[in-house]
Design a protein around this nucleic acid. Structure first.
Lengths: 239, 239
DNA sequence: TGTACATCAGTGAACGCGCGTTCACTGATGTAC
DNA sequence: TGTACATCAGTGAACGCGCGTTCACTGATGTAC
C-alpha cells in the first residue's frame, strides 16, 4: 500500500532538495556570514556538485532572491499569526506579545534577520520587481495595527510636538493598505507606528549584531523594560 | 625659504598616500557595498598597482582594521564634541543636539555607519585586541551622559516597570567607566541609556538601510518627533 | 509482466574572472662627503 | 657644487585559490504499450 504516484514522488523529492538547498544556504550564512552563501559551499555541504544546483535555481542570485522572499514571508507570517491569535486580549498585552514575537523570531533566525535588514549578500543584484517589498509592507502594516489598537484606545500621541504629519509625508503604496484597514488612524498615528518600529528594530539590531551583549548581560530585561515604556507611551495601562 | 626638511616631506607624502588609500576604500564601499573594499579596486582607483598598498598596510585586513578604528573614532569624536560644546544649554537641548549629531554623522557617512554597525567586510577577520571596542565604549559612555543629565534633573524612569536592574546586569568594563563618571546614575539609568541608544540606532539604521525611506518621505520630521518624545520620556520640559 | 523509450537529477572537466599575496626589479628622491 | 651611495615608493609578472557558470555526459527512475 501507500505506493505514491510516481510523478508525485519526483515532485516531492524535488521540493525536498529545493528546501535543503535553502536550509543549507541559511545555515552557512549563520556560521560564516553573508559571504558564505556560495553555490560551491552549499553543494559541498550537501555532498553534491555545484552545478547540480542549477537544476533548482537558474542563477545564484535567483537562490538569494528566493531566500530573502522566504525569510521575509516567514517573519511577516509569524507576526501576523501572533497578532491574529491575541484578539481576545487587551491592546497592551497584544502589543507586548507582538514585540516579543518580533525579537524572538530574530533571535532564533539571526541569519534571516541580517539577510533581510542588513547588508546585502556580496555581489547580489536584486531583480526588478522582487517579492521582498510585499513582505516588508506586511510588517509595516502589522506595526500600523499596533498603533491603531493603541489609538482607538485614546489618541496616545496627541500631545506630541513635531507631530505635524500629513498624508503627503508617506509613501502612497503604504497608505493604500493602511488607510482602508485603519480608517481612524491619522497621519500622526502612522508616524507613531514607524517610530515604534524604530524602537524595536534598534534594540533587536543591536542585540543581533552583538553590540548590546558587549554592554549588558540582560538584554531580555532591557527589552521587557522597553515594552513597559512603549505601553505607557501609547497611553495604555492608565489608571 | 620654506624648503621643508626632506625626511619631513617623505613622511608627509607617505601620510597623504595612507589617507588616500583609506579615503578611496570608503568611497568604494559607499558606491559598491562592503565587498567593494579590495586592494585591487583601491589600487585601480588610485592609478597604481595593487601590491603598492603593501608599502602602507601589511595585509588587507590591517587596512580594514584601520578603517574601522578611524571611522569609529570619528563618530565618537563628533558626538563628544557636540556634547562638550553645549554645556551652557539645557539638558533637553543638549540631548536633542547630540542625537542630531548622531543622525547627521550617519547620513553624511553611511558607509562608515555600515562598516561599524552592519555586517563585516566579507572575509574580514578582526584582530585580537582591536581599537574598535574602545570607541564603541566611548559612544556608550556618551549615551550614559545623556541619561545622567536627565537623571540629575529628576529620575525620569523611576516609575518604570521591568526596571529591577542590578549592577550585575552590565559589563564590568562599561561600569568601570560609567560609575566614576556618573556616580549618581543607578543601574536603571544605565539601562535607560541603552534603551535610548536602541531608539536612536533603530531609526537611523532603518533610514541608512533604506527601509524607512520606502515608507515615508519625511524621515527628518520622524526623527524630530522621536526626539520630542525622548525629551518627554526623560522627564525634561516639564511645566 | 516485460520490453523500449523518455525523463531528468546529478557528474566531471573545464572556462574565465578577480582576489590576496609574493618576488625580483627599477628609478626617482634624498644623504654624506 | 659635484659625485657615490642609500633609501624606498612603486612596477610587472606570477602564484594559487574559490567563485559562478557552461558543456557534454551518465545512469537511475518513471512511462507507454
Amino acid at each position: 500500500m501507500a505506493a505514491t504516484r510516481s510523478t508525485g514522488r519526483r515532485e516531492r523529492l524535488r521540493a525536498e532538495t529545493t528546501a535543503e538547498i535553502k536550509r543549507t544556504a541559511l545555515a552557512l550564512m549563520r556560521s560564516g556570514g553573508p559571504d558564505a552563501i556560495t553555490l560551491r559551499a552549499i553543494a559541498r555541504e550537501m555532498g553534491m556538485t555545484a552545478n547540480a544546483i542549477y537544476g533548482y535555481f537558474a542563477t545564484r542570485d535567483d537562490l538569494v532572491t528566493a531566500l530573502i522572499a522566504d525569510v521575509y514571508t516567514a517573519l511577516a507570517d509569524a507576526l501576523d499569526t501572533s497578532w491574529a491569535g491575541s484578539t481576545d486580549r487587551s491592546p497592551a498585552e497584544r502589543i507586548t506579545a507582538w514585540a516579543h514575537t518580533f525579537r524572538g523570531w530574530a533571535l532564533v533566525n539571526p541569519e534571516g534577520f541580517r539577510l533581510i535588514y542588513g547588508d546585502p549578500v556580496p555581489g547580489y543584484q536584486a531583480p526588478e520587481g522582487g517579492a521582498a517589498p510585499d513582505a516588508a509592507r506586511r510588517v509595516c502594516i502589522g506595526i500600523a495595527a499596533l498603533a491603531d489598537a493603541a489609538w482607538s484606545d485614546g489618541e496616545p500621541a496627541a500631545e506630541e510636538e513635531g507631530g505635524d504629519f500629513d498624508w503627503d509625508d508617506f509613501d502612497p503604496g503604504l497608505l493604500d493598505k493602511v488607510r482602508p484597514a485603519f480608517p481612524d488612524l491619522p497621519p500622526a498615528g502612522v508616524a507613531l507606528a514607524l517610530r515604534i518600529w524604530g524602537h524595536l528594530h534598534g534594540l533587536v539590531t543591536l542585540e543581533i549584531y552583538g553590540h548590546l551583549r558587549a554592554q549588558t548581560f540582560a538584554p531580555d530585561k532591557l527589552f521587557q523594560s522597553e515594552l513597559g515604556q512603549l505601553v505607557r507611551l501609547l497611553g495604555l495601562n492608565r489608571p
